[in-house]
Structure formats: structure tokens, C-alpha cells
Computed example of a mutant assay.
Amino acid sequence: MKNIVQRISVMQKQINFSGSIYVKQKESVIAELSYGYANRSEKIKNQPNTRFGIASGCKIFTSIAIAQLVERGVLSFTDKLTECLDIPFPKYDKDITIHHLLTHTSGVPDYFDEEVMDDFEQLWVTRPMYHIRQLRDFLPLFQNEAMKSLPGERFHYNNTGYILLGLVVEQASGLPFSDYVKSYIFDRANMKDSGYFEMDALPERTALGYIDAKDGSWRTNVYSLPAKGGPDGGAYTTAADMVQLWDSLTRYQLLSQELTDLMLHPHIEAGDDTYYGYGVWIGTYAQDKRKFVLMGYDPGVNFRAAFYPDLSLKIVVCSNRSDGAYDIISEIENELT
């Protein structure tokens, strides 16, 4: 344990990492560390129980919610979008299925298309972020846009697809998406510090996200993200809670073994020897042993988690800056795998 903590400390100083790190192997916590400030103005330090935004790292919550509804017989992965959502999308292909949406192969237009834009803040110039508090608030960003490709034609990472999945969860369950996730995922997994919080009403122990400029100045990300996150990203959680999620999922407390295995199956190749399951990236290490990865990137938010079944190893890194999580988790991986 001493060596890994030393390596993390060296890397933290090199990149000025701000956030929390949690490493657990089998039943032993190898490292639980926090650096930097949750609130720079008030000099409030990050702590192990600080809540962080995790951006797209929470797509796994959406895929679990869909799989639960499949398990209950309310939905099927082969259901077409038109069969399970009473919202018109005049230019969408009629053959889009739940499976297509989960695997980023639906071809629907992405409201934040990383192939054509790289600044998430551009989205809110004409549609202020403080109006985005419910899933239907996202609709004007993509509802009447044309398809990008045919369903099943190719992998194209897609936030719109997960907004659509969240709308399906709401219609199928009769609950607001965030309420569904709290009741059927966070509460069941004993994730007591996790939630979809509004950025202008954050609870205690929640880190503000910081955007750093080259001249040394900084600002928070309050004007950079939707006021409330949704099924494509934006939940807040702690590093320990995300380990708790993985433990609950792999102990079949959230889904049956059959549905869990299907979620974690490499459904589509995403490039560079990487695959995508349902809401989770799947890669390899040490001569093709499988690892599962969650990641999230937003202005002032950087998140990375990796789970190694063969080693019974879980690593979670939450940052309230725009970078750093990958560097930290890579250093830990190099030491322990």
C-alpha cells in the first residue's frame, strides 16, 4: 500500500490533481485519498465523502434502469423506439431499437456531436443551461434533426441516445428519471451520497467544478452544464459509492446474473481494441484479461473508474477539474496490474 500511495502522491504533484481516489482489492481498501479544494474561494478541502460530478460516467445508471425494466417484462431490448416513446421524431428511422440506443449505434443526431464540435459550452449560447432541468428540456436540441447514419451501421458515441433512453424509463415506469434511479439503483446499492442535484441547489459536501485558464485564472462550471443532469450524464456521487455500485451490480443485487452478463457483454467494437457493452466500456490488460471502464468528461469534471474481475480490483478517480483522472488511474494501474 505504501508504494502505491507514494506513486499517487508524486503524480498528484506533477499534474496538480484535485479530487478523490478510492482503490479496493477484494475486501481491503488499498488507498482512499483526497487532494485539492471542493471550494477554492472558501478553502474547503476535498474529502473522501465529497460528492463529485461524474459526467458520462453515469450512463451505466441508465443502462441498469433499462435492464431492470426488461427484467420486469415492461420493455425488451428489441423494442423499437416508436413502440415505447410517445414523442414524435419526424426525421428518425422507424427501426431504431433500445439495443441500438444502448450501444451508440442508433444513428440519431447527437446534441453534442464530438465529431463536429469540442466545446460543450457552445450549446448554451442560444439555449441557456439554467432552463435544462427536465429531460424534455433537451428535446429542442435534437427532436427535429436528421439522422446521422442508419441504425446498426456504426458505433458513434451519442448523448442523445441516452436522453431518449431516459425518456423511455420515465414513460415505462411513470417516474421522473432521477427519482427512478434513486429508488431502484442508488437506494438498493446503498449509495447514500449519490443523486441528480441541481447545480444552483447543491447539497453539502459537493465539490464545485473548476475550469482553469492558461494564465492561472479560474472559474466554476455553473454556466457550462445543464442545471440538472440526466441519463446521459451529470449525476453526483462519491468515489466509494461508485465502488458500492459495482459491488452491488456484480453480486446481482440490481439485476439477475443473466441481465448483468448481458450488460457487460462486448456488444460493439468502439475502436482501438475497445468494446462497448450497455453503458460501459470494455478493454483489456495483461495479455487480454478483461477490464470494465466508466469515464466522464465535462468542463470542470473528470471521472474515471476501472474494474478488473480477475484481480478483484476496483479503482475510482473523481476530479473537480477538467483533467487528471486518466493520469492518476493509469499510474495506479501500472502499479497493480
Score class of each variant (00 low, 15 high):
I4K: 07
I4M: 14
I4Q: 10
R7E: 15
S9N: 15
S9D: 15
S9E: 15
V10K: 14
M11P: 08
Q12N: 14
K13H: 13
F17Q: 00
I21D: 00
V23Q: 04
K26I: 11
E27D: 15
V29Y: 07
I30T: 03
L33M: 13
A38H: 05
N39Q: 10
N39M: 06
S41E: 15
S41T: 13
I44V: 13
N46L: 00
Q47R: 15
Q47H: 12
P48H: 10
P48S: 09
F52D: 08
I54R: 01
I54S: 05
A55D: 10
S56I: 08
C58M: 06
K59R: 11
I60M: 08
I60V: 12
F61D: 03
F61T: 04
S63P: 14
A65W: 03
I66H: 13
I66V: 15
A67N: 09
E71Q: 13
R72D: 05
R72V: 00
L75Q: 07
S76G: 12
F77T: 01
T78S: 14
D79H: 10
K80E: 12
K80H: 14
T82R: 10
C84E: 02
F89G: 02
F89W: 02
Y92I: 07
D93S: 13
I98M: 12
H99S: 12
H99A: 09
H99D: 14
H100T: 10
T103S: 15
S106D: 15
S106N: 15
G107H: 01
P109L: 06
D110N: 08
E114Y: 04
D118S: 12
E121G: 10
E121C: 14
L123G: 10
W124Q: 00
W124R: 01
M129C: 11
I132G: 03
L135T: 04
Q143M: 01
E145P: 00
L150V: 06
L150P: 03
H156P: 03
Y157E: 08
T160L: 06
I163M: 07
L165P: 11
G166Q: 05
V168L: 06
V169T: 12
A172D: 08
Y184L: 08
A189R: 04
F197H: 06
A201D: 15
P203F: 00
R205C: 00
A207D: 10
Y210C: 06
I211P: 03
I211K: 02
G216P: 04
T220P: 03
N221W: 05
S224C: 10
S224N: 11
A235T: 08
A235L: 04
A235G: 08
A235D: 06
T238F: 01
T238E: 01
A239P: 02
M242V: 10
M242C: 06
L245K: 03
W246Q: 09
W246M: 10
D247K: 15
E258T: 07
D261P: 01
I268P: 12
E269W: 07
A270F: 13
D272Y: 13
Y278A: 13
D288F: 07
R290M: 11
V293M: 09
V293G: 03
V301L: 09
V301G: 08
N302K: 05
F303N: 14
A305H: 02
F307A: 06
Y308L: 10
P309Y: 13
D310Y: 12
L313A: 02
V316Q: 04
N320E: 11
N320Y: 07
D323V: 00
D323N: 03
G324H: 00
I328C: 07
I329A: 05
S330F: 14
T337W: 05
